[in-house]
Design a protein around this nucleic acid. Structure first.
Lengths: 228, 228, 228, 228
DNA sequence: AATGAATGAGGCTTCATTCAT
DNA sequence: TATGAATGAAGCCTCATTCAT
């Protein structure tokens, strides 16, 4: 779960299938890019078809390499899954941690800013797919749950919770139950990520609602409920 | 039950999930119950491990029959999946449709009542698992999306949307964007269903928040935001 | 290593490839004969080509079943190997143990009889192949060594050693080193088993010497050397 | 060395195990030694794990070179096997042939000397492993059998056989069957070589008997049986 | 209707071999 | 010459499905 991922540094936000169009020799093309290409391909496919239904050869093919090459970088499909999740979330961690610290203005604005930042960073990037992956695979790989809760859920709840708390303390918000408010704000964001990679990907029916617009309005609506 | 099943393409109903409504001699009780037992076992396992990772023998075993017996009722694992989803959702449909029609009181109360009714009916029942199943499997079986959107999503959005609309028209709610408000209300409910069958099943960390309490407060909070 | 072998009782001495010529339905032919048929096929092939070079499908094919059927009886190729060795040697054990006890005549005759009995039982039967299997595979599966030494080597050395001892005590043999004499008697027998399943099977060059005649004369020769 | 290599069919010598006899500048010492290092590593590993179970990368690693380098010296793993066997046995051949010719003393002493010389040369050297290799691999590579029988077995039997014959003719030995006596003398020696590289390498149980002491006593015992 | 032994296509993984550097 | 990344054929094993009982 750890080893192979230390190689990966730059985290491309490309939407998957790595470009093979560059003029480069087919072999030895760029060894140091391989792991990230494989992780991207794997995230795409695992999120699309599910871990079990994705053949490792498909992952390799989408990354532009042969079946065997995958195993030069990850010792098994399962380790690949863990690496995919870990690598994507590792970048999440600590990202938003600091920013809320010394905000001077109204809490509503702070909240909007923090959530919007996170949303921008996540929804349009492949990271949005990780949430689907986690929802679908945790019960088969409980180690993932532990990691996810510790590294993403808890820090996230803390962050948003502290902002709500600030609002209450400054008299901007009513004295609501903090955890509840946090979930009210965040759950729809996660849900939209899941939607994007499931029903949203086959039935454009619901796409009449623009996700970014919705989240903005949703946050607005909940903040309205918190006000005074 | 038969009438509502025209959706899942031609093959899906080839076997016709057997009706339990016939008056049958008590000694055949067990045989009559088989299909439902198989569907229940399948829903459980599919939601837990995913469709691809669930062996059909496991389903049979959990239903208390032998491997071959499963195939007497459903011609393939895939048909079983479709039957599972369809059968669960068929009962959802039309249920809540009528109740909103002639409610006299304040819209807030109507909304709370409708959502609470639905929530009670869904969250603690196996039906909550269907949402996970849909999220995880639609992209592999697009017929499911079609069925789900038409029979569940659209009616649901309509129902809640009409209530929001009523609130606006009666001057109880601010003139918000209706689809947005609907999603703000509903997405956390779906999300909690998903959570229950994924992270909630392995990491009790988040279970500190009671789902029923949360939903009550969430609805309250959003309604607060809609008010005036 | 244990489980599956308890089913097997009668130990056929057929030279491998089980007769499929009996009129019997292809499926469900004789479930209880399967394990022995698979063990026989496996012993044959493992001794011929080596464990690693034998494909499990070959074993199945020689036993007259399909690839997958093998795995209904043995959970892996490695377990099959262990079962093969264990089952063959289990019959060895305790066989010769008792017979030497109360022999009245000259020690030379006793020795000839005991060795001839064992030789007859082993050399012309598939059991002779087990020795090759052990020689070739112990270093890859050290558990086998333990079992073999404990169950076959030690009892065998004890048995022959006691007879040599008896000869010495009765003044029939010279006071030689007992373990040495034992090995002088036995090693050529093992070696002939190995030969039979290696060079003897491809280059009939050495087959000018009849194994049975040789062993008789070899024992005679060594006993001659022990005399007085 | 080149002269004796006509045996292993056409392909076997395609690369021609490089001669070390050329006078070469010292800085190429390492390069010159490569083939022998590879052969030694291969013999070790093939004898330990079997040909099929040994990865060619392991051989390269043990010889201290990279995977690809192996293929600069031997065109395939199979050719490497043949080269290993051939090179080891080529040195065996003709060695002992001459020494028996003009021995003046008693035949027993001649025999002891010839066998002891051979034993010393073989048992403690890597050559002892070749016997295991031959036993385990002949049936997969029948060319080996041909070569081995012609170049090792037959000359060896001739040599020892002539000595036995000499003993009979000089009235020192009883008129026994010569081939039988030869095998009685030699088979335990081969068996001890096999043992050293199989059970002897994992279960030190049997190592209580010193091989050198045993062989001395074994020869003594058989000669005793031949006497008069 | 129910069983479970049998099948064999298909997926994961290994490793001999190649080849660009 | 030497390397080791890459390949893909081939082997182990699983499991959806069949079918004789």
């Amino acid at each position: 779960m750890a080893g192979a991922t230390t190689l990966l540094t730059s985290q491309s936000l490309s939407l998957g299938s790595p470009t093979l169009s560059d003029i480069a020799p087919p072999r030895q093309r760029r060894k140091e890019a391989r792991p990230q290409e494989l992780l991207d391909a794997a995230l795409d496919l695992f999120a699309e078809k599910g871990f079990a239904a994705t053949r490792s050869e498909e992952v390799a093919a989408r990354a532009g390499v042969a079946k065997g090459t995958l195993y030069l970088y990850y010792p098994s499909k399962e380790e690949l899954l863990k690496a995919v999740i870990q690598q994507r979330l590792s970048s999440e961690i600590a990202a938003a941690a600091a920013q809320a610290a010394s905000y001077p203005g109204p809490t509503e604005d702070l909240m909007k800013e923090v959530l919007a930042d996170w949303w921008i960073k996540v929804f349009d990037s492949p990271t949005s797919a990780v949430f689907k992956l986690i929802i679908t695979e945790v019960r088969n790989f409980p180690e993932i749950a532990e990691f996810y809760v510790r590294e993403v859920v808890e820090p996230g709840k803390q962050l948003v919770g502290r902002i709500v708390q600030r609002g209450i303390e400054r008299g901007e918000f009513r004295p609501v139950d903090v955890p509840t408010a946090v979930l009210s704000l965040i759950l729809p964001m996660i849900m939209l990520c899941l939607h994007k990679h499931s029903i949203g990907a086959c039935a454009p029916a619901l796409n009449e609602v623009d996700p970014h617009a919705f989240i903005r309005q949703h946050v607005q609506l909940v903040l309205q409920g918190l006000r005074r």
